[in-house]
Design a binder for these strands. Structure first.
Length: 193
DNA sequence: ATACCGATGCTCT
DNA sequence: GAGCATCGGTATA
């Protein structure tokens, strides 16, 4: 069961924490794959140098971030597709990147898609989890409160840790913001602190 | 364990 | 035509 649309109507940093422990589900013709979200990163829109929507940049790519919380923002990075949850009120272009999952169901399908040996390698990175679940640019513009790509209730994380975001060294002051959140001691987190 | 490097595709200038 | 919110291989320790 998808969470209701209202779940996404939170302050972006609060939503980034609330998403930890939730289940991300993708249904395809090949079957269903799902995993618990264990790592997220917040991108704070107009005022955040590291955000695609910095300074309210509005292009074909960033357009969906203006359409209100709960939308699916997929973005192509080199050969990979990255998945984001749009946050903030309509007109406020904020988003949360999903960086890692703990596989829950459909692991055979994930292994078939990823071609790796260790379970840890299935979903411990933003490009990896998108491929494991079969998420593509086709999902751009959908909503996370309806099938076939949705977020459902999961478990309550014991302890949450925070730190600077990964891979944004070129955006001077923004690189220090503690906008990365992960579940402490979870082995599927993409990198240790 | 960390470090570097090339692949490869889409968006924006 | 440049620039990336990445990944997997190879290289070294």
């Amino acid at each position: 069961m998808p969470l209701p649309a209202d779940f996404f109507k939170k302050d972006t940093l609060e939503l980034a924490r609330a998403l930890l422990g939730c289940l991300l589900v993708k249904e395809t013709e090949e079957g269903t794959a799902a995993g618990f979200i264990v790592e997220t990163e917040a991108y704070m829109g107009a005022s955040d140098r590291a955000a695609h929507s910095y300074g309210n940049r509005r292009t074909k790519r960033t357009e969906i971030m203006y359409h209100g919380p709960g939308h699916v923002y997929t973005y192509q990075m080199h050969t990979h597709c990255l998945v984001n949850v749009v946050s903030g009120r309509e007109g406020t272009p904020e988003a949360i990147l999903i960086r890692a999952l703990e596989p829950f169901m459909g692991t055979e399908l994930m292994f078939a898609r990823r071609k790796v040996k260790e379970a840890k390698q299935l979903t411990n990175g933003p490009g990896k989890l998108a491929k494991a679940l079969g998420i593509t640019m086709e999902d751009y513009g959908r909503v996370f409160y309806e099938r076939p790509l949705f977020i459902a209730e999961g478990y309550e994380p014991e302890q949450i840790e925070t730190g600077p975001r990964i891979g944004i060294d070129n955006t001077d002051e923004a690189k220090h913001y503690p906008y990365r959140f992960w579940i402490k001691e979870n082995r599927y987190v993409s990198r240790r602190a």
